[in-house]
Design a protein around this nucleic acid. Sequence first.
DNA 1: TATGAATGAGGGTTCATTCAT
DNA 2: AATGAATGAACCCTCATTCAT
Lengths: 208, 208, 208, 208
Amino acid sequence: MVSQRETTRKVKEEAIFSAALKTIKEKGFHKTRMSDIAERAGISYGLVYHYFQSKEDLFDALLNRWWKGLFRLLSRIQKSPDPLRKKLAGIIHYFLDTYQREPELVNIFITEISRSTTNLTPERLESFKAFLSSTEQVIQEGQDQGVLRTDFKARYLTNIFLGALETFVSTMVLADQRIKGNTQKQRIAESILEVFLNGAKQQGVGGH
Amino acid sequence: MVSQRETTRKVKEEAIFSAALKTIKEKGFHKTRMSDIAERAGISYGLVYHYFQSKEDLFDALLNRWWKGLFRLLSRIQKSPDPLRKKLAGIIHYFLDTYQREPELVNIFITEISRSTTNLTPERLESFKAFLSSTEQVIQEGQDQGVLRTDFKARYLTNIFLGALETFVSTMVLADQRIKGNTQKQRIAESILEVFLNGAKQQGVGGH
Amino acid sequence: MVSQRETTRKVKEEAIFSAALKTIKEKGFHKTRMSDIAERAGISYGLVYHYFQSKEDLFDALLNRWWKGLFRLLSRIQKSPDPLRKKLAGIIHYFLDTYQREPELVNIFITEISRSTTNLTPERLESFKAFLSSTEQVIQEGQDQGVLRTDFKARYLTNIFLGALETFVSTMVLADQRIKGNTQKQRIAESILEVFLNGAKQQGVGGH
Amino acid sequence: MVSQRETTRKVKEEAIFSAALKTIKEKGFHKTRMSDIAERAGISYGLVYHYFQSKEDLFDALLNRWWKGLFRLLSRIQKSPDPLRKKLAGIIHYFLDTYQREPELVNIFITEISRSTTNLTPERLESFKAFLSSTEQVIQEGQDQGVLRTDFKARYLTNIFLGALETFVSTMVLADQRIKGNTQKQRIAESILEVFLNGAKQQGVGGH
DNA sequence: TATGAATGAGGGTTCATTCAT
DNA sequence: AATGAATGAACCCTCATTCAT
């Protein structure tokens, strides 16, 4: 059984989260005021400080949602015996699914972290590098298995793959486009996979 | 012959430009103070306002350097009869060359414009869209000529191409990596081109 | 019962009002700094912005005190069946009474609005014109009733009346004179009324 | 014979004067920048300092034009044996004539001096008081000669007279109205004189 | 828990004035 | 006489954060 106090806490935190997400997406982290968030959450701005230490703290809590899910997925992928295509598809779908469910979260990740040095504290950079590394390991594995060409560094291929994925999402983000149904999502995922895997596949002698 | 006045102006403007470039790259546009720029340029902050109307104005002047060169290149490419590979190589090399010469400029473009909604005034968005469109036309042309597969929208392929390019540059940017010589530059350009063109090429009739 | 919060707000607003009134009167609106007002009110300047949006906003709040009372009076006068002399006396006394109670308020009205184009936003001009019009209607009515001469436009007579009144007040304002008791106030009011009504009265048929 | 140097000086000073007059009238003294004046005069802002020590200095030079003419008139009036009506008419016409010729000058006098404490340096206040005194002497003389009622202080009657005059001019100033020909000017002058003299005349026992 | 009064560091911008050329 | 580069005091306003209630 959960105490009423705990319930209130959850509810309020969620309201703040949601308000922060929307507002930061609209105005950017820097231009978002704590009072904007509070107003949107329907509480006083003083109360935000009851739940979160500071603006930065709240921001990190937001980002952790993104990282937590992503790292859980990546660690599952790394252990799994699935073929490369399925693993990469998993990463793509994490982006697209999250974008469907919480577009603001993906927006913020792309906008404030993935391409911005401004908000990059050492801790955040660490998370980002870990993400790159994990993806690179998946790619490296593909090379080791002879599925991907080895004449380019794993890091290069990783850049190409993630770059394609990120740009897809960020152009949608910029244009405020929603993903219309699973068919479109499949289509997007396939185009990235097809082009990348085709382009990066081992050009085997008798390869096919 | 140029008057001394005019020379002074040019010299100072250049000093401000250079200082702004470095400082914005280091701290981001938002966290860069006009006084930071002035100090780095070795002048009083009042003088910055003598040459530029405002912080935004200075920022736009900076960006125009980037856009001007890029649009000149794109218009040349659009008119040229070169094969697709050479055209795309041209775009890639504009990024890489500029990154070699003025890494901060590319950094700022990637960081503050390409992936950030925060600083996106309508005018800047316009430039950005024009850039996307022009690239898309090149890709579209590749499809029309039967060089690129047509089962994906031109916009999709454009995203993949530019995404790969941008991510390459931005990971270098993030890691503060310099490009070591033309060999490395060639290698990077090739990896993008190879993977993209291979992955996006028209699948021959008997192809499998 | 009033909450303590509300009381604090009222008290502070009043303190700011009062400080603004005195400071603007002494230094003029332009030369008055928000920090001057805050200092005089015994609070930090940040708090002024907690209660008023901007310097202009605070200024308007100040003026509204003046206008509110004046327009309430004018609308009462317009509906009333009183003779002209009593109506004009009402207007005069509004100036003189307010001057006794809040000399700074009258000062600011005269100094910053009545004769200055500098601070004249369209909204403020509107208030001013409404004031002129209402007074003109009273004068016009006097003409229609045969009490005032009709060989001069109502607007001309209005100018003369208000001009006399304003100058009285503003010379006191300039000299920082207080009105000493009701006798003096009566005397001033009478002198304006006497001279104006005598000078502007209908020259009766047999009158001369 | 005048040296060419001296001629240039005169021409430039006049250009600066004229530009200052117009600009201060439009924007007010405080909001007028030295560079505005220079630009309007078609010279560099540095040059303004060659002719005038400071912004305040230029402003005083402007005002002196007004005061010089007014004091010359007042001293002539004080010595003259003309009847009161003619003397007051002289003062009125100085305002109206100057307003026809140099409306900005009258505007500035009314706006920045007559009703504003902001720009009131001790020297300027001195001029203003001298003007009031001189006019009061004329009025006093009228009382002594039995032309004006003596039951009101000379200062009161002076206020009424100048107030009526000033308000006339300042409403035209506010509305940016020009005086259309001498007929209108006569009409205005008459209305002020008529109302004032009628209202302030000695109420003879059997007087009429 | 909850409110909002209170603080003040911080930053963009303006503009009179000086002065080397 | 003439220019405009150069300076920096001044001032408005924002907003994260603290804290009494």
